[in-house]
Design a protein around this nucleic acid. Structure first.
Length: 736
DNA sequence: CCACATAATCTTTTT
DNA sequence: GATTATGTGG
């Protein structure tokens, strides 16, 4: 069964790729059969183990690349893994499935979409689309958005989805009432809407897969047989749905290796379930557990500080990182007056280090929240030190990029109403809410997309002449662009669309300082499209590979959130804002109590272990938050760092011991007592749309009374008493 | 329907 | 402080 070429490699008993691995790492590579859990602490060579293991499975002839599935959380991790495995094997990883949970689930789903009620061309929605969809659902159910913001409702829905629960599986006690409705009702409506839009959100990729696998054992069997060996990275970040998905896929061969670190689980707010990793041995009977504890990254003091901190968490699997390296410098703590001083001190140290010959890229400033980057950016600009903000505003999330993509989506997927709504009046073409309402009415009546409704309505007199002309131009443009998409390369289509839609012209006319940058971004988008032959392929890439061009190799200081820094390492790490309320963040404390605090502590642990040689912690006495001064106490985490590994370096001399300080977190959002609103006054459609005959007297909301001259299906030719002859949809008139 | 002004809410982290 | 919802006048 194995490819002979690989069998030859298996004869090579040397297995040179194993050299240089420590005993535990080697065990993790060679334990190929049965369930395996590799607990890999920070800096213990996890990636190396993962890639070597994959290479070993192939080189030893246990399977061909075809039988391998490697799952990661980020696209970056997937790319790196593919590259490194390819390098180890000396050949491309063709046939091997390496990708994120979502990308792999999408790939499977595209093949069997019909079995779950989707067309294989389904669109993958981003958060923006999701919010707009929830808003529509809220509106349709007449729920006050002030009391129940779309974001909140969506997060409730997402939490269920993360747990693998469809609308019919939600336990009643988990549901909440929103006045006349329950959240589950909205969830159900939301899912129905997604199906009619032929769309899936991110979580759906997995949920639909789960349904597919359970309802169609033959399909499941196909994948079970194929994937002889399954490998999962960052297992501590997996949610319940992902866990179920893996379990189904691994059932046949039971060769499932999960690599992770419970101490680095920092995505609980996104539905990640630490329990997955804590329960692994119970879920997969006979699992072998391997601990990687030897750290190759950080000095002794840094590891000691991190270990002392994380020891305050209960419910760990327990690992102790150790190193043979030097103790190095102690971790420093500095109290500063405010965030300006904080930024100034960091800036000075970077400048001094750089003068002494250190590369700028060896410095990282890791913040708890994105808003904290500003002070540092301002400071670094002032002292002319180049920096990059990693993961800030991502390329594909910029407004102009999403607009452009929305155009492409409507071309490739005429049913994509959300994309259509986004751009049908961008740039301005005199089409507002009222015109949109007409399209919606037709869309509902005819069970068709807005795009299609637009095509229909321009043949009638439903809209005022200016608006009809405007809409007709748009409809004709889309027709033309769709034709073009058949014959010319995708990138040319994109360029054509931006030009002909007037989008480029709109930005050129825009005098705001951001406009030139936006135009450049659009050019970059066209370049990105050029890497794909077909528009659909590009769109798939966009929705799944949301990470932007990672800053080129230029020598710059790195500024990013701690979340964004996971998996990275730097010589010197600055950790500002270690204050209660900031880090740990108040919201984490308020919403999830002790569990939230523990997750924050793991986050702090991740932050510290990014440093190879030097870690500098800061806390400020006061700080401008939302334009208001806020005074904070030093983070309780500071007091948890073992004294022998840290050094105070300021003259404030405040004590850091503040353990046991009660947390009187204020609860936000007092959303009880929802007032029942009256039923909506819906525009009543004439249910008997057909059946109009020439000569019938009819009444129209806008045009008044008239007489049918000709009828063709739903399209009527009516001579109105006052308004004259008009073409009108039957849905809009009543028999008089 | 659009442009401009004012008001409110926001920021925890992201595939 | 900045983005976004709402209101007013053309």
């Amino acid at each position: 069964m194995a490819d002979p070429a690989f069998a030859v490699a298996a004869v090579d008993r040397d297995q040179p790729y194993l050299s240089g691995l420590n005993p535990e790492q080697k065990r993790a590579v060679l334990a190929t059969e049965g369930p395996v859990l590799v607990l890999a602490g920070a800096g213990t060579g996890k990636t190396r183990v993962l890639t070597t293991r994959l290479a070993h499975l192939v080189a030893s002839g246990k399977t061909t690349p075809f039988g391998l599935l490697a799952v990661t959380f980020t696209n970056k991790a997937a790319r790196e893994m593919a590259e490194r495995v390819g390098a180890l094997l000396g050949r491309p990883t063709e046939g091997m499935w390496i990708g994120t949970f979502h990308a792999i689930a999408a790939r499977i789903l595209r093949r069997h979409a019909e079995l779950v009620g989707l067309k294989s061309t389904f669109t993958i929605l981003d958060t923006d689309d999701q919010i707009r969809l929830v808003k529509q659902v809220l509106e349709a159910h007449d729920i006050d958005e002030k009391r129940w913001p779309a974001r909140l409702v969506l997060s409730l829905i997402e939490r269920w989805k993360d747990r693998g629960l469809g609308p019919d599986m939600v336990p009643r006690e988990d549901d909440q009432s929103l006045g006349p409705r329950r959240v589950v009702d909205l969830y159900r409506a939301y899912q129905e809407r997604l199906l009619t839009l032929n769309a899936a959100d991110f979580s759906d990729l997995l949920l639909h897969c789960l349904r597919l696998f359970t309802a169609h054992p033959d399909v499941l069997g196909e994948y079970q047989n194929r994937f002889r060996y399954i490998l999962v990275d960052e297992y501590q970040d997996s949610n319940v749905a992902q866990h179920l998905w893996l379990r189904l896929l691994a059932q046949a061969h039971r060769n499932l290796a999960c690599v992770g670190d419970d101490d680095q689980s920092i995505y609980g707010w996104r539905g990640a379930e630490v329990g997955n990793i804590l329960r692994f041995e119970r879920d997969f009977a006979g699992a072998e557990v391997i601990r990687l504890e030897r750290n190759y990254r950080s000095t002794g003091h840094i590891l000691g500080a991190a270990a002392g901190l994380i020891a305050h968490n209960a419910g760990r699997l327990g690992k102790t990182l150790w190193t043979e390296g030097d103790a190095g410098e102690k971790v420093t703590i500095r109290g500063v007056w405010d965030e300006t001083e904080e930024a100034r001190q960091v800036g000075e140290e970077i400048e001094a280090g750089h003068r002494a010959g250190a590369a700028l890229a060896s410095f990282a400033i890791l913040v708890r929240t994105g808003a904290q980057t500003r002070a540092f950016e301002e400071r670094l600009i002032t002292i002319a030190v180049p920096y990059r903000v990693v993961g800030g505003l991502r390329f594909y999330e910029r407004q102009e990029i999403r607009d452009a993509i929305a155009y492409l989506r409507v071309i490739a997927q005429p049913d994509d109403d959300l994309a259509f709504e986004r751009i049908y009046n961008t740039p301005r073409r005199g089409l507002g809410d009222s015109a949109l309402a007409v399209l919606h009415t037709i869309g509902r009546a005819r069970v068709c997309s807005l795009s299609r409704a637009a095509e229909i309505v321009v043949e009638t007199d439903e809209l005022s002449p200016q608006r009809r002309t405007s809409l007709r131009r748009l409809v004709e443009s889309f027709r033309r662009w769709r034709g073009a998409a058949e014959s010319i390369p995708a990138a040319e289509v994109a360029a054509l669309v931006l030009e002909e839609s007037g989008y480029t012209a709109m930005l050129q006319a825009d005098k705001s300082p951001t406009a030139p940058g936006r135009l450049e971004n659009l050019q970059e988008l066209v370049r990105a499209v050029a890497e794909f032959a077909r528009l659909a392929e590009f769109l798939e890439h966009v929705s799944l590979v949301m990470d932007a061009a990672t800053g080129n190799g230029a020598d710059m200081v790195n500024i990013m959130t701690v979340h964004g820094a996971k998996g990275l390492e730097f010589h010197t790490v600055f950790l500002p804002g270690w204050e209660d309320g900031i880090f740990p963040h108040q919201m984490a404390l308020d919403e999830k109590g002790n569990a939230g605090l523990e997750e924050e502590r793991r986050l702090a642990h991740v932050a510290l272990t990014r440093a190879k040689v030097r870690a500098r912690l800061y806390f400020a006495g006061r700080r401008l938050v939302h334009g208001q001064w806020q005074t904070n106490l030093p983070s309780r985490f500071l007091a948890e760092l073992p004294a022998e590994h840290v050094e105070r370096q300021d003259s404030f001399g405040q004590t850091l011991g503040n353990a046991g300080r009660p947390n009187h977190g204020m609860r936000r959002g007092d959303h009880h007592r929802v007032i029942a609103a009256p039923a909506p006054i819906a525009y009543q459609l004439n249910p008997a749309a057909d059946g109009f005959l020439p000569g019938n007297r009819v009444f129209h909301q806008k045009f008044g009374y008239g007489r049918v001259r000709a009828a063709e299906g739903n399209r009527l030719d009516i001579v109105f008493d006052k308004a004259g002859e008009k073409k009108v949809m039957a849905e809009f008139v009543q028999k008089a």
